[in-house]
Every structure is written in C-alpha cells, then in structure tokens.
Amino acid sequence: MFFVLMGVWMILNNSLAIEIWLTGGVVSLFLAILLCSNCSVFQGVNLTPKAMLYTIMYILVFLLELVKSNLHIAKLVLTPSLPINPGVIRAKTILKSRMARLILANSITLTPGTFTIDFIDDTLYIHCVDLEGEDLEAYANSIIRKFEKYLEVIYD
C-alpha cells in the first residue's frame, strides 16, 4: 500500500527532487498507517514471472475486448432497427480474492454487450444486450472464463 501511494505521488508531482521524495514518504507512511485496514485489498498478488507474463497477456486481451465491444456497440447504434434482445443471466465465479473480483466485474462491464448488475456471494448477474443461442450456461461461462483463467494465476 505504501509503495502504491508513493508511486501515485511521484507521478502526480512529475519530478524527482529530494524534497518531493521526503514529503511523499511522510504523507504515504501516515496514510498507510492510518488506513491499514484497507491494506488487505492489495494482498494476494503473485509476483512470480509466470504471473507477470499473465498480467501482460491479460492487459492485451482486455484491450482487444474493449475495442471489440465498442465496435459492437457502434454497429448496434448505427443500425436503424436496433437488433437487440436483452436479458439478465447468472454466472458463477471461482475467484476468491477481492481485488480479482473487482477487476473481473469491471472487465465484464467493459466487454461486448454485457454489464454486471449485481454480485451476491459467488454469483454474478450479468445484463446482456444480445442473448445468443439456447445454451445460456455455456454462454455465461464463455463470458467469465475469458478473464478468469488469467486472473486466477495472477491472484491466488
């Protein structure tokens, strides 16, 4: 937590002078001690080389999905007849780490035609613009597994 705050402070100041190091250190240390109950959010990250590799792959997959989702939305909006059939489906996740769950939910919100409405225990409720096919379970799994297989390596 201390290092994250320190990094944000250095980026904000955009300089490497000694006084900025000093002030940033004091402020981040104070915040890290004061709000230590929040530290648990940042725990559970694997720092092995494999996890690093998966992080990069995850970011690439995520960016690809983001662009795809926007092209999808653009196509949808520009079609005169609005070919949608929306619905809410449920999907189960196996992730336990809270940070991983947050990233999963955010990713789902930003990917093609889906967004997370509710998160109860282990079940995600996903609103889809365009429900495809009959096999809902398989569809829900295909949405989730795309990201889960990277996240479960990065976070344990």
């Binding site: 937590m1 705050l5 915040l31 890290a32 709000l35 929040n38 959010v41 809270r98 940070m99 769950r101 947050l102 939910a105 955010n106 997370t116 509710d118 998160f119």
Partner: peptide
C-alpha cells in the same frame, strides 16, 4: 455491493 466496497477501499486513500 461488494464491488463498491472494494473500489472504495482503493479510492479513499
């Protein structure tokens, strides 16, 4: 919701 809780823990500091 749990998502808001986690995001709040990151965003408040």
């Amino acid at each position: 919701s749990e998502i808001l809780l986690t995001a709040g823990k990151i965003l408040v500091p």
